[in-house]
């Protein structure tokens, strides 16, 4: 298990470097000059040229990239072009907020998705099954912004039962939790659909397996057969899907945070891109990517814990 974990960790290194490279290239393609942004609208051409030299923007692109990677590795993501704050400081604040949102979303949506999928599988072909699967199609196909706006309009504006802008403090306070409900529900709804569907399919598949018949022939109770011999095996493909879905979740977080004014990395990235604040945008991309890589690492380890055949390979 330890060897497998180290292997996975080492594989994350080239992926991270790739993320740095792509983030760097993309933002260099943006038709905007960081020196002009930093100098402000009223600066003269000489001042801008001087700032360009200071920032190293007159150096060849590859040299800029190497220096950038070096800085990132030493924990320096530069300073914001807009407010001169260190990017790491802005990110650490925003990352906590995003993590809070994603974790809260997973906490309620993952168990719900698995339970709904199992329930639909056990009531296969009934009205319940059709309702759950129909609902999951809606969750898969409705765009996040539509779900978000609807939630905001119904619960925030019409019924006025929940706050819908900003963060109300740490999650363990009542106000903090109340503020987090709508955005985490919005995120969760796009996550539940595919995961519930996969759980249902996988569960139906597993319950037909020979080893489940063996378990029944041993005289185990139906509950033990379904949970011990069905669910654990059925969760193996579901885990893979959850790993992929977390990517969508982080993408969805960008939209959700914007709708609900949640001060997370997604909103930071959008704001930075709009303001041409390249260091902050780059930092946000790196943070989101590292978050995705870390989540996938966890999923991979979970996968190996669920299925002993994985470690053997």
């Amino acid at each position: 298990m330890l060897r497998y974990a180290v292997q996975r960790l080492l594989l994350a290194v080239p992926v991270t470097l790739g993320v740095l490279l792509i983030g760097f290239i993309l933002l260099n393609l943006v038709p905007s000059d960081p020196a002009t942004v930093r100098a402000g609208p009223s600066a003269s051409a000489e001042v801008i040229a001087q700032i360009r030299t200071e920032m190293g923007l007159d150096r060849p692109l590859w040299e800029q990239f190497l220096r950038y990677v070096g800085n990132v590795l030493s924990g320096d993501l530069g300073t914001s072009l807009v407010n001169n704050m260190p990017v790491t400081e802005e990110l650490s604040r925003a990352f906590g907020a995003t993590l809070e949102l994603v974790v809260l979303c997973l906490l309620w949506a993952l168990p719900s998705a698995i339970l709904l999928g199992m329930f639909a599988a056990s009531r296969r072909g009934t009205l319940w099954d059709r309702l759950i699967m129909g609902g999951s199609v809606a969750g898969v196909s409705l765009p996040v912004f539509l779900i978000g706006m609807t939630l905001l309009w119904v619960f925030g504006y019409k019924l006025q039962v929940l706050p819908f802008t900003g963060r109300g403090g740490p999650l363990w306070t009542v106000d903090g939790l109340r503020h987090a409900i709508l955005p985490s529900v919005c995120l969760g709804l796009i996550f539940i659909g595919p995961v519930a569907r996969m759980t249902r399919t996988s569960m139906l598949e597993t319950l037909k397996a020979d080893h489940v018949r063996t378990a029944r022939a041993k005289g185990l109770s139906e509950r033990v057969v379904i949970f011990r011999h069905g669910l654990r095996n059925a969760l193996i493909p579901v885990t893979t899907l959850v790993g992929l879905q977390i990517g969508y979740l982080l993408g969805g977080a960008i939209v959700t945070e914007t709708i609900f004014s949640w001060p997370g990395v997604g909103r930071l990235a959008v704001g930075a891109i709009v303001a041409n604040d390249i260091p902050v945008a780059q930092g946000a991309i790196i943070a989101l990517s590292l978050g995705f890589i870390a989540m996938n690492l966890i999923v991979d380890l979970l996968y190996a814990a669920l299925d002993p055949r994985v470690q053997a390979k």
Binding site: D210, H211, T214
Partner: peptide, 17 residues
């Protein structure tokens, strides 16, 4: 317990996990 069964497919009749 009192009646048990052996199946045809040894490759799949045990739970892999």
């Amino acid at each position: 317990n009192r009646i048990s069964m052996i199946f045809q497919e040894p490759m799949t009749s045990l739970n892999p996990v």
